[in-house]
Design a protein around this nucleic acid. Structure first.
Lengths: 219, 219, 219, 219
DNA sequence: GATGAATGAGGTTTCATTCAT
DNA sequence: GATGAATGAAACCTCATTCAT
């Protein structure tokens, strides 16, 4: 688990300021990537001095990680809402997919930040990030599938953890397809349609069929 | 489509040298990412001077892109072999999955380079790369699915292009899970097992079930 | 017209520092030309770091242009003083010539910088520079000649603008002859005397005769 | 006087090749200036290898100087023709001016090369160049004026060498005004007319009046 | 004579981080 | 707490020149 990466001074800052810094940081990091983001620019756009920024965060990496934590908590809370319900697993999947389709523009920067993380090269950092970000989500999926398994709502020869993994692979890929340059182009190459002009309903329907088949079918 | 990004002098170099430069380049770029890779280091490790490197490639970006083209052509030729056969689609899927499991270590750097690309931030470059890389693969998948569709081997209410897209999402994610730091950790979080110690057969079996259900099931 | 080429940070620097940087810059650029001048050297001699230099000027070219503006404003203010008087045109010419002879050592670097500009190869930059530098001077000369023309102090068949141009050609060449290596040697080849040992009075007298005849004579 | 700056191998090359190399060299140096001209490019455009270029010239500077000698000999031979005649000095001046107006386009590159030289920063080189280039011309002018002086064709209180110098200043400035970016813009600022659209006859007439007055008038 | 592959020093520019005020 | 001027290491890239063939 990632410990807090900000200094105490950051906690003491006003909520408005904290919000602003992380918002600007998320925007800059998601637009430019970690290397090309400029911490001096982030400070300026946040309306604080670079000196104060270093009173809040020891390094550029710490600011980056704090931005990630912020972004992920936002994404996770949306998922939380859906997964805690009592709906059947396919119903939950549908809601998650619709949420992705619907909110992908509003939260585009968070998702692009997430995409940035998935190509992290530092093994130690990658591990900490994965645990921070993937753990909560994975438990929700695994639990839901296990429950469905117990209720015999899904095929009985599936491995809940692997199937949760495959499911999340599909959802993660979809998120990126709505928000990240390369994945957007990839989407168009496969479907022939720009993702902005795609009928979301068609995507939802087809992906649900895919998932439903995957979870339900049994020879 | 990406045109060649190397200069004529590079073509004239010995095969051994060309091989060496691209091998070193792929290693450096996949280990450090584009920004943190150092051309001077690549030149030194390749046994040539920095001046000569710039006789071969006009910019760092051009070297990067040539490394990508090299990596992709290797990956694509493996896929080509499988997809051109007359097997049923699920048989092909199985072969592709096995190939991924089997070769993921040998070609780890290529796949990590591919992962690097998927978070490219330059829209123009992202588009060119997506077309170069995704187009050949997508046609193979779409064609195979369309053929299966015509033979009634798969459910008749699927959209071939979207299903090809979903299928590739699963395979792409699997590749990354074998090779890229973050994805490897993510895999372990979902499955509880480090990917290096995972029984490949279990992964193959489960993923095939997932795909088989997705393509076969019809209410 | 050239807009300012320095950043706001430069304006905020102390006058002493601004003065120092431009003085050193003018010296380096006039001694070595634009290409061979070294920004790191200018920074070091100015007593600031290279990083700060780039806080002040975005590029080497911007520093160069700011040096030029500084040099030209000094040269122009000397001319301004003379031209705004009510003297007859030949009296003004005499004063200008004497000023050139007298101040050519003190301002040698400015004049050599001006010389550097006159062989500028970038057409866009050349145009901007010419307008910045030549316009104020040209108006002064043309106006003076036009006034003399109106008073019948000069021959009535002259074209004021072309005669202003010829006059300035003579003065520009004289400036260079006092300050720039090639022109100094050229001067000696023509006159047989090194310009430093030449009796300025002789030059003033002869050049005034030349100009007086040019402006006065009428068949 | 500049000694030859080419190696013996260059003398042994075919006239065609020598011609080509110098022609290309003059073009590159006059277009880009000494620093920005690329000797490898000059070799390629001349149709020879860079290795051979260094068999012909020891350094880039030597090639440059040989180009200058070539360019100047062309310009000088045109002047030679005019000055050796028996015409009166003003007639000769008119012919020189007309030659400048007429041939300025054809020989633009030579003149721009000459312009490049006039801002040479190396004192030793500047001196050698000035002697090479200015000496022949200066003798022609000084001699002509001295002859005119003896015949009482010009005012008797002029210093022949200084007047020759002033005269050449006017002609040199005019040459540059027809060919070099900065000087062309300067011409337009003074006259209000682009030098390409200027009526040459007007320039000739006015400059001749200027010179005639300068040489003839006597209080 | 002729080639052109190969070298590598050196210059411009960026930006994370420090610290005096 | 807050500022922002100041630092300087490090990276990309150019091109005159060499030399083995």
């Amino acid at each position: 688990m990632i410990e807090k990466r900000y200094k105490e001074a950051f906690e003491r800052a006003s909520d408005e300021r904290k919000e602003k810094i992380l918002e600007v940081g998320i925007e800059e990091f998601s637009n430019n990537g970690f290397e090309n983001a400029n911490i001096n620019v982030i400070a300026k756009k946040s309306g604080i001095s670079i000196g104060l920024m270093y009173k809040y965060f020891a390094t550029k990496e710490d600011l980056f990680l704090t931005c990630i934590q912020r972004g992920c908590s936002i994404l996770d809370s949306a998922l939380e809402e859906i997964m805690k319900s009592d709906e059947k697993i396919l119903k939950k999947a549908e809601q998650v997919i619709r949420t992705i389709c619907y909110h992908s523009k509003k939260n585009a920067n968070y998702i692009r930040l997430y995409n940035e993380i998935t190509s992290e090269k530092n093994p130690t950092l990658a591990k900490a990030l994965a645990e921070e970000i993937e753990f909560p989500t994975s438990r929700k999926y695994i639990t839901s599938i296990a429950q469905a398994f117990a209720k015999n709502d899904v095929r009985q020869d599936l491995d809940p953890r692997l199937f949760a993994f495959f499911l999340d692979n599909l959802l993660m890929s979809l998120q990126f397809s709505y928000t990240c340059d390369y994945h957007r182009d990839r989407f168009e190459i496969y479907t022939g349609i720009n993702v902005d002009e795609m009928d979301d309903e068609q995507v939802v329907t087809q992906l649900l069929k895919f998932i439903e088949g995957a979870f339900t079918y049994e020879k």
